[in-house]
């Protein structure tokens, strides 16, 4: 039997989802993974990873090229069914409730996030609609968003002609427009100048303050230090998981770059 559950509220908006009655009494964890595994034939891309992420936490998911990050993230987003193990995302099961997962998460990557041939407002309206917001909600929130980002004079500008930094800020805002429980950021901030990058992190802090869990992968090790906690994947397994401060202590390293190097140089796999 299934009942309608009210998902975590953010700023007074509610996202409705369906889940089995027994799971209503959920924990404070927004992501729970236990021995999560994905095999492709003989190849174990993700090998029994276990971790929890709390509500509002900024969680860094790091690893070398080919470590299995993308495969793991695809399972957590409900895009790929695990071979074995358990995981829930915002209380939804990664085997059976993939559609509910998709409604309760946001996703942004540097490679694709917005339609370049649509205007700023058209992108906002489109993604708001996809996530089931009403026209009225979209209109009110779009107004607010354009003001916050200082894009009010540019609502009819094609996204393709915006500077990269603006695109990234807009893409992030669109990814959390429907106030998801979790937003997945896949290599979000490559290439922008240091000041713009910090404005981007200001937005992430703000989302986290509002209770949205932020799950981020990045190649910038200095950027990893913004996260509350970091996991490091090597050859399909999580080899370390802690706060940046503790990881640096544990590996007697000056920077996260050194921690990463210590862990990843023994990696057997390499790839994209």
């Amino acid at each position: 039997m299934a009942i309608v559950r009210i998902a975590p509220a953010v700023n007074g908006y509610f996202a409705a989802g369906i889940l089995p009655a027994k799971e209503v009494a959920m924990s404070n964890y927004v992501i729970e993974a236990e021995n999560l595994t994905k095999r492709f034939g003989d190849f174990t891309a993700v090998n029994e990873i276990s971790f929890h992420v709390e509500k509002g936490e900024i969680f860094g998911f790091l690893g070398a090229n080919g470590a299995g990050k993308t495969t793991a993230m695809r399972m957590l987003c409900g895009l790929s069914i695990p071979s074995s193990g358990k995981a829930t995302i915002a209380g939804f099961d990664v085997y059976k409730q993939t559609e509910s997962i998709k409604q309760n998460i946001g996703y942004m990557s540097q490679k694709f996030s917005l339609y370049e041939d649509l205007t700023v407002l058209e992108n906002i309206t489109f993604f708001g609609g996809i996530y089931g917001l009403s026209r009225k909600e979209i209109a009110v929130k779009a107004d607010q968003l354009l003001h916050e980002l200082g894009l009010f004079d540019h609502e009819n500008t094609l996204v393709g002609s915006l500077p990269l930094g603006w695109k990234q800020k807009l893409a992030f805002s669109v990814a959390i427009f429907h106030e998801p429980s979790i937003v997945f950021l896949d290599e979000p901030t490559g290439g922008v100048d240091p000041v713009t990058r910090r404005q981007f992190w200001d937005l992430i802090y703000k989302a986290s303050d509002a209770g949205i869990t932020v799950f981020v992968t990045t190649h910038y090790m200095d950027e990893a230090e913004y996260c509350n906690r970091i996991s490091m994947m090597v050859d399909g397994e999580i080899k370390a998981l802690d706060t940046p401060e503790n990881l640096k202590k544990q590996f007697n390293a000056r920077s996260m770059d050194d921690v990463f190097f210590e862990l990843a140089r023994g990696a057997k796999r390499s790839g994209d």
């Binding site: 070398a64 090229n65 490559g190 290439g191 190649h219 090790m221 770059d257 990463f260 190097f261 990843a264 140089r265 990696a267 390499s270």
Partner: peptide, 10 residues
């Protein structure tokens, strides 16, 4: 080195 992980960059 854009888009290459920290070990390969080094």
């Amino acid at each position: 080195t854009t888009g290459v992980d920290a070990v390969s960059r080094k």
